[in-house]
Design a protein around this nucleic acid. Structure first.
Length: 492
RNA sequence: CGGGGUGUGGCGCAGUUGGCUAGCGCAUCUGGUUUGGGACCAGAGGGUCGAAAGUUCGAGUCUUUUCACCCCGACCA
């Protein structure tokens, strides 16, 4: 079971893939571009889901579920939207199979052709807005605040575990409001929820900001984003929140009677995060020994490895460890005693490190005699021997310290890789070395596109809560006047 | 769809200019010794060499066709 992981510094993308596979998070499925999320990976995803779901509910959002299939006609109502997704849609054309008349196997029954094709949802705006039409007649029906946890399908050319798969899991929130102000406020509120989750649960420093028009969601008037930096200096869009204006309401004719008795189109938002966050977790915190999971996200926060030679020692150690486990669980922490007796301690140490468990306890005959336990922390890879007395309180405090340390480390890394740049030649060179560059931009799509064509770098966001830099200057590429700096980076 | 590459036990690979019974590492199984950082020894099981056709006394190796996957582009959360 020896699992050698490629060194992070040698080949970042190989290292990433190795980690996803060997930490038991996921594997490639037999279906092209699709992924199997394994129990350990799913446990982390469930933790993300549970935490986010509670945060959504605190903002008044309720969960619902809408169909997987979208009639083609729905999909084509919003022109920009269909243009944005048309190239990556899976389409259902038939509803029945039959035995192959020429021999073995089954073929699609040509008589079972659907009158109207169904699109497997790449996102649910269209089906949801066609439903909202029936839900909304008066200002009293608003706002509607729904979220759904589901899968979506985007037929991508090239895929990578968690970061880009043909099918992925996500949540998508869709809200309907009586006024533009209220909808914009909601879009802003939700991006702040994402930022809060990223920073405080995932220990992921993110930059909140607006997308440039070029990078906006298809059909949105404004897209807010949280952008994170991975350890190779590339940017990862970790979540988005869109102000959709009245675009979808117009396309699906969703009007309400306002307080003045007049018909008005509804204002909309949508927002989502996906299993891509799993990719962010790997790339933001992982090291050469494997995954590093922030305590608030870890399905197992403390793992305990017993060390013994005799059956008596085994029983005695396990007794002590189980007592600690109960104490920890009483404090709301999750702990696991690794009592597998076919594996040796050294193997278990390596395996739990690979899986990123924040704290590991080891106890053997020596500790039994002295009333101590060895406490190892994953983030620093350090260990110390502690007295059993008060151990649960110590671990609880340690988990908080680890959570903070992981965030601080990621933040320090990011800050060390963000800089201002005012020279085009310098820009071209530096952007390739894995940096976020704060540059002046003239605000035009043409300039943005020209920079992308020349360097592959895109505007990740126009920041609103960190690296905000509103000052006069000239565009890095065109030399035209600019009023603020924006974040440029190569992205995933 | 353009450029490049790879298909050989579960995984990772070797296999020379065609040659004998297709090998190695890891994993698996059995027995024993071990157990404070990925154990060791001994033994065992497991492969129609991606598929089809062809050349040949003989094909993992050569030819043709075909399929699948990976990497670099275009596209994207």
């Amino acid at each position: 079971m020896a699992k050698e992981v490629t060194k992070r510094s040698e080949n970042y993308s190989q290292w990433y893939n190795d980690l996803a596979l060997k930490a038991d998070l996921a594997e490639q499925s037999a279906v092209r571009g699709c992924m199997v999320i394994k129990p350990y990976g799913y446990a982390i995803w469930e933790k993300m889901q549970g935490t986010l779901d509670a945060m959504f509910k605190r903002t008044g959002v309720q969960n619902a579920y809408f169909p997987l299939f979208i009639p083609k006609s729905f999909f084509s109502r919003e022109a920009e939207h269909v243009a944005g997704f048309a190239k990556e849609c899976a389409v259902v054309t038939h509803h029945r199979l039959m035995n192959d008349p020429d021999g073995k196997g089954v073929v699609v029954d040509p008589d079972a052709k659907l009158e109207e094709e169904l699109i497997v949802r790449p996102t649910s705006e269209t089906i949801i807005w066609s439903t909202y039409k029936n839900w909304i007649t008066s200002w009293r029906d608003l706002p509607i605040l729904c979220n759904q946890w589901c899968n979506v399908v985007r037929w991508e050319m090239r895929t990578r575990l968690f970061l880009r798969t043909a099918e992925f899991l996500w949540q998508e929130g869709h809200t309907a409001h009586a006024t533009a102000e209220e909808a914009e406020a909601k879009a802003y509120e939700m991006v702040q929820v994402y930022a809060d989750f990223a920073r405080n649960v995932m220990a992921l420093p993110v930059i909140v900001g607006h997308k440039s028009p070029n990078e906006r969601f298809a059909g949105a008037l404004d897209t807010l984003t949280i952008e994170a930096m991975m350890q190779d200096g590339k940017a990862l869009q970790a979540g988005t929140s869109h102000f959709l204006g009245q675009n979808f309401a117009r396309s699906f004719d969703v009007q309400f009677t306002n307080k003045e008795g007049k018909q008005e189109y509804v204002w909309a938002t949508s927002w989502g995060v996906s299993t891509r966050l799993m990719g962010a977790l790997i790339m933001a915190h992982g090291d050469d020994n494997g995954l590093v999971i922030p305590p608030r996200l870890a399905p197992v926060q403390v793992v305990m490895v017993p060390i013994y030679k005799t059956e008596e020692e085994r029983t005695a150690v396990l007794d002590k460890l189980c007592a600690i486990k109960q104490e920890l669980e009483a404090m709301g922490l999750s702990a696991r005693v690794d009592d597998r007796d076919t594996l040796r301690p050294g193997f278990k140490f390596a395996e739990w490190e690979l899986k990123g468990v924040p704290v590991r306890l080891a106890m053997g005959a020596r500790d039994l005699a002295s009333g101590t336990v060895e406490v190892a922390r994953r983030d620093t890879l350090t260990k110390e021997t502690m007295p059993l007395d008060g151990i649960a309180e110590h671990i609880s405090a340690l988990l908080d310290a680890i959570q903070q340390n992981i965030y601080d480390k990621a933040l320090a890394f990011r800050d060390a890789h963000v800089e201002k740049c005012d020279n085009w030649e310098e820009f071209k060179a530096k952007i390739q070395t894995g940096k976020f560059l704060l540059c002046h931009w003239d605000g035009t799509v043409e300039t943005e596109q020209a920079i992308k064509d020349a360097t592959k770098a895109t505007i990740r966001c126009i920041p609103i809560d960190s690296y905000v830099c509103e000052e006069e200057g000239t565009d890095i590429y065109s030399g035209k006047p600019s009023h603020r700096r924006v974040v440029f980076a190569i992205s995933y």
